[in-house]
Design a protein around this nucleic acid. Structure first.
Lengths: 344, 344
DNA sequence: TTGTATGCGTTATCAA
DNA sequence: TTGATAACGCATACAA
């Protein structure tokens, strides 16, 4: 409970000097600074955040708004943000804003309006116009992870590119009957729509017909959709692009259950490089949600330091990780078989 | 940016009355209260949390400390806490304290010491003596989710009971060669140790030998451990108790890959009723992390309201959910086969 | 380099 | 029932 007055007294200086010594602002002789610091330490002095905030107008706290926290991508981003903020001594207050809930309304109307933070990180928020209005009216810098370009800072995967790469990989192997699994539900997410578009564009450019299979964006969702899709022997595709690894892995599990060998009868590719991807030998386009979260946090803190420099838009390129869930379609010989061995 | 002074002026009352009208403390005539409230609304007045905290000593914020946020259990608990706090208008600031990291030290030494919260919820923290000391020295009420009894409030699953039920279920089906998968690593968690004990005690009481197979507590961890365990045809168990569903599901996936049919050649039971449990037909002992989180939050808020009533210790009993990952061991006829059909 | 005095936006105490 | 005014604990402009 020791206040700065106690510290000042113990070091026999004024509160002002004590404050300067502790915060490192303004001139203080090295001698007295040491005395103050020692006094503070021995008294176990910790500045009251409320008082500091009131006096400075800054909270040393960052707000994070996300629609889910228990889904892999979001949890990973959160960890990345937390890590980065920790390093800079910033606190993190979390706002859960599940789409379509009453809680979400309260978050936008009441909680965010309290401005208990110096800046905001919005992860996959997809705000309505109304919500977006509230967001900007808060008057604090915002960085979003995932999502379309905006005036705020953005850190996101280049979804179009990732989906294109995934599709091209399968086309390159000789597949033509390639289905895209994911999205299309009630709360169609921007990410999934973009990836679907990347897939569709690539398919059309190659002169083959795209085939979108709606699916909940989760492992059980991918499983269920794949069971339906693969159960019909006649129209069965030879390859699947999952909108994310969870969906792709669900499809692999479904295939195994149905006795369809992967990759010899069915190729599957995902986007993420999820924690489980290796265990399922999933070929995928890697992104790092943790790195994205950390990057967003750094960008926001940078902005707080220098309010004048405009914030950037960072588009990350996913890199293909080849594992063994993809191969040429049945009947088509492997490329390696038909060509000369590559020189070493 | 409107302050309470602006509201007061607009309603032509003093700041004091404005404050009383808005906070609902002290006498205010219904007439003026309405005037003040309307003025506040039309000005878009939102009280400065910093000023309120400074004046009242309360933050309307709850700190949550957990070692992971991306693991299923923790993420679910977090959602439960968030939900409950939201309903009561409380903010949530999150502290990530992964065991063995430098960040964890900083959380305990610096971040928590700032006391930016009225109370703390510790989820599966397993603090060292040193850390525990810091925790109590903060002087704020604490509720822990998961973990041993303490002076603080506790909300947790009865792990001993859950593991016993799981083991008894398998014993009752006629299994004798039952392995326990999970825990035993470097950061042996209290939960896993307790569940292991519940298993071991039950096995010994039944006169059969317990067999603990160490495993990382995750789906890939369970998979890897099960591949090793089941690969050895000679010493293969007929049943597995997973310390949690993730481990159990990993084991099921491993069994499928190895061509071992579940449940006819191998029974698997878990603890959790994880999001994926149904999709793998996993028999399991259900608990609700969300409910535990919400319960902990309510308990803490209750304590803040009435500081005198001591906090309780809530032990939840898991309930067995029968799916089709468990059956009698090979060679032993199903109970139903050997007995008269049950009356309808 | 240090000290004095004021402000930050509320709530709470005391009179009126 | 209301209003003036003093905390709350710190940072900072200004003076010394």
């Amino acid at each position: 409970m020791a206040g700065i007055a106690d510290v000042a007294r113990a070091a026999s200086v004024s509160k002002a000097t004590a404050s300067r010594a502790l915060t490192g602002s303004g001139y203080v002789s090295e001698q007295t600074r040491a005395r103050v610091v020692e006094a503070a330490a021995s008294l176990g002095y910790v500045a009251s955040t409320a008082a500091v905030s009131l006096a400075t107008g800054r909270t040393r706290n960052i707000g994070v708004v996300m629609p889910y926290v228990s889904r892999w991508f979001f949890a990973e981003v959160l960890e990345g943000i937390q890590d980065a903020l920790l390093r800079h001594g910033y606190d993190l207050t979390l706002y859960d804003a599940r789409p379509g809930t009453e809680g979400r309304t309260r978050v936008f109307d009441d909680f965010l309006a309290r401005k208990r933070f110096d800046g905001l990180i919005a992860v996959g928020l997809e705000p309505s116009d109304n919500e977006l209005g509230r967001l900007v009216s808060i008057g604090r810098p915002v960085v979003s992870v995932v999502g379309p370009p905006s005036e705020a800072g953005v850190v996101a995967l280049d979804d179009l590119h990732a989906a294109r790469r995934a599709t091209e990989h399968l086309l390159g192997l000789g597949h033509t009957r390639i289905a895209f699994l994911g999205g299309g539900g009630e709360h169609q997410a921007f990410v999934d729509a973009t990836r679907l578009r990347g897939y569709a564009v690539t398919m059309e450019a190659a002169g083959v017909e795209p085939h979108h299979v709606p699916s909940a964006v989760s492992l059980p969702g991918g499983y269920a959709a794949a069971v339906d899709l693969l159960g019909d022997t006649r129209e069965r595709p030879t390859a699947i692009v999952g909108t994310c690894d969870e969906v792709a892995i669900g499809a692999i599990i479904a295939a195994r259950r149905l006795g369809i060998p992967v990759p010899s009868s069915l190729s599957v590719v995902g986007i993420d490089n999820h924690e489980y991807a290796e265990m399922f030998s999933l070929t995928t386009l890697e992104q790092s949600p943790q790195a994205q979260g950390a990057r967003a946090a750094e960008m926001l803190l940078q902005r707080l330091r220098e309010p004048d420099v405009p914030m950037a838009e960072v588009r990350l390129q996913a890199t293909l990780i080849l594992r063994s869930s993809t191969a040429p379609p049945p009947g088509v010989p492997s490329v390696a078989v038909g060509s000369a061995p590559a020189p070493r």
